[in-house]
Simulated scan of single mutants.
Amino acid sequence: MQYAAYVFDAYGTLFDVHAAVRRHADQIGPEGQLLSEIWRAKQLEYSWVRTLMGAYADFWQLTEQALDFALRKVPSADPGLKTKLLEAYWRLDCYPEVPAVLKGLKASGARLAILSNGSQEMLQAAVKSAALDQVLDDIYSVDTVRRFKTDPAVYDMVATGWRLYPGAVSFQSSNRWDIAGATKFGFRTVWINRSNQPEEYRDFPPALILPTLEALAPGG
Rank of each mutant, 00 (worst) to 15 (best):
K82D: 02
A107Q: 15
N193G: 04
G118E: 10
G104E: 04
Y89C: 08
A66K: 09
I139N: 00
L115C: 06
A217L: 11
W90N: 10
R146A: 11
Q61I: 13
A88H: 05
D26F: 02
R23I: 09
A5W: 13
L44I: 15
V135F: 04
L86Q: 01
E45G: 12
A77H: 06
V190Q: 04
L136I: 03
W48A: 09
L105M: 11
A57C: 15
W177Q: 11
D156C: 09
A20F: 06
D138T: 15
P166N: 10
A125Y: 05
W39M: 04
M1A: 14
L115I: 07
S174Q: 02
A10S: 08
S116H: 01
V169Y: 07
E200R: 12
R111L: 13
G186T: 14
F69Q: 06
D58M: 03
A107Y: 12
Y95N: 05
K73L: 09
D26I: 06
A131W: 10
D151P: 01
F59W: 13
E199F: 11
Q61M: 09
P75H: 10
G80D: 03
L115A: 03
S174M: 04
N193Y: 09
L67F: 01
D151M: 07
V7H: 07
A107D: 15
Q27M: 04
L112V: 01
W162D: 11
D138V: 13
R163Q: 08
F59C: 08
W162A: 14
A159L: 00
L105E: 03
A125I: 00
A125F: 03
E37G: 05
I209V: 15
T51I: 04
A159G: 05
P152Y: 03
L81T: 00
G54A: 04
Q120S: 08
D133M: 02
S76G: 11
A207Q: 11
G80V: 04
L34G: 10
A25H: 10
R72Y: 06
A131F: 14
E200W: 05
L35H: 07
A159H: 07
W191D: 00
H18S: 09
D178G: 01
P198K: 09
Y46T: 12
F15M: 03
Q124A: 11
A100V: 12
V158W: 00
L92P: 07
Q33C: 08
L71E: 05
Y155Q: 00
I209W: 01
E87V: 12
P218G: 12
R147D: 08
E87P: 03
Y155M: 09
L62Q: 14
L132S: 05
G104L: 09
K82N: 02
I28N: 04
A168Q: 13
P198E: 11
Y140S: 02
A207S: 14
K103W: 07
D178Q: 07
F204E: 12
Y11Q: 01
Y155E: 02
L136C: 05
A125V: 02
I179W: 06
A215I: 01
Q61T: 14
A107H: 14
D203A: 06
S36G: 13
A126C: 13
D203W: 00
D138S: 07
